[in-house]
Design a protein around this nucleic acid. Structure first.
Lengths: 158, 158
DNA sequence: TATTGTTATACTCTATAACTATA
DNA sequence: TATAGTTATAGAGTATAACAATA
């Protein structure tokens, strides 16, 4: 039994929950949106067994082949210590290759393998589709640009 | 030695790193912005020993006193199993109180203690300051509203 | 049977310190 | 001395399963 007669309920109209104390906070909505977008990304990329961080690493190696580990890691805000396992995984899957540069034998130059390159084509296509969906939800590319501008204003200074 | 004479460098103009493959992705910028805003929140609230999740829990209890644990947890997207330790911490600090409702002895009704209430005043003031800073960075309340609207468009459907 | 809170557990992310090999 | 990569480790955050008490 959920409630008595409409006339004499103990729980009147089930007093609504008031979440404005958090829902009106920019940072809170930013986080909720980010979580949902990442969950969607993971669902869409599950068949490729690719998480956002792995995709971003592959994408940066693709456009900056031969980069040192630390260059990719720092661009993504990943500590070099945590980057090792990430690259190990991608290398074990045959997607990424560490090469020894002759001029600096401390560092590892990163490249996509041919398998990595062909997978990257599919990943980029899937990402483009996802991005198009996001843009459609926003209302168009003008709104996308607006959002990106607002996000950069939020982060630019400091 | 960083480089040879300007005329015959091995590393020409230090070929710029191209991060457009990720920086032009909505989800990526969303995440970077969220991380930075949360880091700023943590810095600003460090003196109160309050993390974003703890603040959000206290804020929802304040505006919905007597709520069950599961109501607060679900509103914030926290699993009830993980919510236990969170409330334990706040209760141990004397900020939150679990009370036994007579009508449903399975549940715990949550309330702020008087200490919790007076701390909440300071927290809300600090949060209002932080929010004002964010709004100023965005360019004003119109831009804040725009951002919130765009974020909700991104998440509304599905 | 279903719900609420709880415990235990595991997995991912993230952060720090210390080591190695090279520069 | 400093840098690049690595290892080990510890702390959050998050996810699932199972249990006790109660509805």
């Amino acid at each position: 039994m959920e409630q008595a007669s409409p006339a004499l309920r103990t729980k009147p109209t089930r007093q609504r929950f008031d979440d404005r104390a958090v829902s009106e906070i920019i940072g809170y909505q930013l986080r909720r949106a980010q979580i949902q977008i990442f969950q969607e990304f993971m669902a869409r990329f599950a068949s490729f067994d690719m998480r956002p961080s792995e995709y971003s690493v592959m994408a940066l190696i693709a456009s900056n082949p031969g980069s040192k580990q630390i260059a990719i890691a720092e661009a993504l805000g990943i500590k070099r210590a945590n980057f090792v396992a990430l690259i190990n995984t991608l290398e074990a899957r045959g997607l990424v290759e560490r090469r020894q540069p002759a001029n600096d034998r401390r560092s590892h130059a990163l490249f996509l393998t041919s398998i990595g390159i062909s997978l990257m084509e599919k990943l980029d296509a899937a990402q483009a589709e996802f991005e198009a969906d996001c843009i459609a939800r926003l209302g168009g590319t003008a709104e996308r640009d607006q959002l990106m501008e607002l996000l950069s204003r939020l982060t630019d200074q400091r």
